[in-house]
Amino acid sequence: METTLVQESKPPKEKAKPVSALGMIAVDAAERRTPADEFADPSFEVQQLDFFYGDNQALTQVDMAIPRGEVTALIGPSGCGKSTFLRTLNRMNDLVAETRVEGKVLLDGQDIYHRQVDVVELRRRVGMVFQRPNPFPISIYENIAYGPRLQGKVSKADMDALVERCLHGAALWDEVKDRLHTSALGLSGGQQQRLCIARALANEPEVLLLDEPASALDPKATARIEDLIGQLRGDYTIVIVTHNMQQAARVSDHTGFFYKGRLVECTPTAQMFTRPEHQETEDYLTGRFG
């Protein structure tokens, strides 16, 4: 990809560390901490992440690697920091007043909290879908065109093609192809949520962050979203927060268990659900709390 997160990339200094394709100085491999080593090419590496809402610490010393092209589920009791963690990955927490981040979040080896990082560009590369479907009160077509239009002018023909591609990608095309120019608010909740996924896809992101994307939907719509996640797997790195352990088991390759702001463990999903390493994980999975 030719895009760069950095607004103006500085010329590399003499004797500089190798410059990544994205224009920023890559973090020395030796500086990287262990969790990343499990994966040859992680998409995100999170290192010693602390997060504060004012004086209230919501995340403590989170180390996590998120493998590229796979589905990572985040589970844990409500209030344990799953959403907060997800929102540190595209810096949506910047919008909340009086918050503070410590530690590193590397996307393709670049620290996304580096002061030169262009947050707008970051959010285009790391798309997000929220708990409640939130289509804009405009037409289906315009919802999808919104992201690409922010980046510049797109010809009508290209946009038509893009809209169709994204709606296919979100398994929504057949249901809406005859009413692209009607209000998105006329869709059912499940359709709206898939539209929000299509809208995120239109930015051609590398990563999709899904924060309990099915919690407001009925079981049938939930199943469609889960199918869709399966289809997107491989093309996108997906991180999904879910309240529902069965859902995590169904859709994810890796699962991270959060408890009281800490990442207790992060292992392949099958392993987490059969042989959890920590007592807290086991207690949660067996429903002893949460």
Partner: peptide, 15 residues
């Protein structure tokens, strides 16, 4: 206007 609409826009890279 619901905050979720703003989140949606910011999440797409809107300023």
């Amino acid at each position: 206007v619901p905050q979720s609409l703003r989140d949606g826009a910011f999440g797409l890279g809107a300023t």
